[in-house]
Design a protein around this nucleic acid. Structure first.
Lengths: 355, 355
DNA sequence: TTGTAGGCGTTATCAG
DNA sequence: CTGATAACGCCTACAA
């Protein structure tokens, strides 16, 4: 592994010039530039990102906090792999690397240390929920002025940078889809209240019903925890009151599928199923039987957008020249504000239409 | 943010001593130790991981290469999220951080530069396949002596460190499960040959059939690409020859579910389905209708094992004291060799048993 | 047991 | 336009 010294010698210039050429800073005579590039190429010189980071005191890493999932399957891996892909794609455009870590189940996460130890320059937090420790950690981040972005969760009263999807609208669309078809008795299987997403879905459901001149029947409001199992549990009640239920809206696909499973296990035939709409439009939705209508959430784009918001003005400058930020404004409802909401969309499949 | 200088001053010692205490190296008088810890605590000093890395010329990062997946859905996100979780869990135990990057679809990956630029100290490669560029990149890694581990893919004739599951056995079990029930006409929907996993499954199928005194009917061997869609395509042929097919073994769950979907679309009723066994035991398997029997692969454990193999002897020494390596030997078939195979297991559900 | 000092490979400032 | 030359914050012999 050639050193910068050797490159400098071979090119007949100083080490500083080698640096300048390789970093593309400062004015440089074209010939010098060529000589350096040649020498560098010939010797196979590769600058140390470590030393560079140290000198600039910038790690070049974008931290990504993922929920603790192994073997739990509370959430669809689909969701996070999509968001992670979007983040990775955009991060690469900005010359940043992804440092991913899993939230520890018990011990509280200390996000600020990530910055203080200089492991990351910015960070994106996925799968957060509104509990005390999490909130405190973020408030500290905010106070110390570290750039971070929360995805898929809203903290009321805080000024955190957030990227989310319009779940109120998504849920409203789902309900409207039901009421437009004349369904009146609609059950709603929501997730825990500690996720703002759940609250927003609830709000959307209210809106949708209200538009049809209806109100939410408290008896048809069930709470699961986004797991398939909780959907199965909810199915007990739904099966029991099957005659008075037209349709079921679940806050995610896993629960919707869980409910369907539960009904099947109770010997209820597909023909007698209520109409179903799930949420997330994960791959499980199209694999379901019958194929599950679902509210599509642009997870990938949300990931991209989160990175964009963090990178605003603090790009690496390395290989970021041709970065066109198309995605960050066109489809965005509110992007300039601290909280960006991307649109959701109802995907209609067989589960919600009388065949 | 307090500097080490301040800590040293407050504790009345030299900076070197502060370092020693915080790193737990060298003999240190208990009182000094206490004083330093107190001062450090009081000032809220946090050492820079960046500077430390630089000084040691070790990044402390474990690179993880993931396949390019966004929106493709060729593979189950389940699989990678499990492996990633396992890797993350073990990496944390060893005080290493995860640097994840996505393989670029077009341009060839240059793995060695990752090391040369000192972004990672070791790396794990997921979703590799046997193509020229990939192989060449790994050979270079190997020649330069960089520690890396390939997961879920075998490169014949190379001495790469590999972690995989016993797919020959897994497939044999699936076939035996069929033949034990008296099924004779078995269709096999395999994946592309460029994945060693596909070849191993094929071998297992051959073995299983042979043990039952049978041979593979070339007409019942179909090739998909691990996507649900390819399963749907395969279903055309299976539907056509339904009367002469008892059972279907698919190389992954997605294809199995795809085949089932295809049959349904053609109006074939579940009662008339052949028996099904899938592979991976992803969450899709238990969500399928009917619930899909599947070969379970210990992805999480494979991730853990991969890290263990890389860490052998080169641990960080920081918070790695209580690391007990239980997982790395007990259930392992061959661990000391460069290629480790973890056992697979057949999970039987309704899809493969006559109700 | 502890202090001193050199070094790690870049970046960036300041002359020239 | 280019060459010296301080930082950067920590680790680690080597001395004491």
């Amino acid at each position: 592994m050639a050193s910068r010294r050797e490159v400098a010698d071979l090119a007949g210039v100083s080490e500083a010039t080698v640096s300048r050429v390789l970093n593309g800073v400062g004015p440089i005579k074209e010939e010098t530039r060529r000589k350096v590039l040649e020498a560098s190429e010939q010797l196979g010189y590769v600058p140390s990102a470590l030393a560079r980071s140290f000198a600039r005191s910038k790690s070049g890493n974008l931290g990504v906090v993922l929920p603790y999932v192994p073997k739990a399957h509370l959430f669809s891996a689909y969701l996070f792999s999509e968001m992670l892909s979007g983040i990775g794609s955009k991060a690469r455009d900005n010359g940043m690397d992804l440092l991913v870590m899993f939230r520890t189940p018990d011990e509280a996460m200390n996000y600020t240390d990530l910055f203080r130890r200089q492991k990351v320059d910015a960070c994106i937090i996925l799968g957060a929920r509104h509990d005390h420790g999490e909130l405190a950690a973020m408030q500290q981040l905010y106070q110390e002025g570290h750039p971070f972005c929360v995805m898929n969760q809203h903290f009321e009263g805080e000024s955190f940078t957030e990227v989310d999807a319009d779940h109120v609208e998504g849920s409203r669309l789902a309900i409207r889809h039901f009421t437009d078809q004349g369904y009146r008795k609609i059950a709603f299987v929501n997730g825990p209240d500690s996720y703002s997403n759940s609250q927003e879905r609830m709000e959307g459901v209210r809106l949708g019903l209200q538009e049809a001149g209806m109100e939410l029947d408290p008896g048809l409001l069930l709470e699961g925890n986004y797991s398939r199992r909780s959907g199965i549990e909810a199915s007990a009640i739904i099966a029991e009151r099957l005659h008075e239920i037209d349709a079921v809206f679940a806050a995610n696909d896993r629960m919707a599928i869980g409910v369907m499973h539960g009904l099947r296990e109770r010997g209820i035939r597909v023909e007698d199923f209520p109409a179903f709409v799930g949420y997330d439009d994960s791959d499980a939705a199209e694999m379901a039987v019958p194929p599950l209508s679902s509210v599509r959430v642009p997870f990938f784009e949300m990931g991209e957008l989160a990175v964009s918001k963090l990178m605003h003005g603090s790009v690496d400058g390395a290989d970021t020249a041709d970065t066109t930020d198309e995605a960050s404004d066109s489809k965005v409802i509110r992007s300039e504000s601290i909280r960006a909401l991307l649109p959701t969309e109802l995907i209609i499949r067989a589960s919600s239409t009388r065949q």
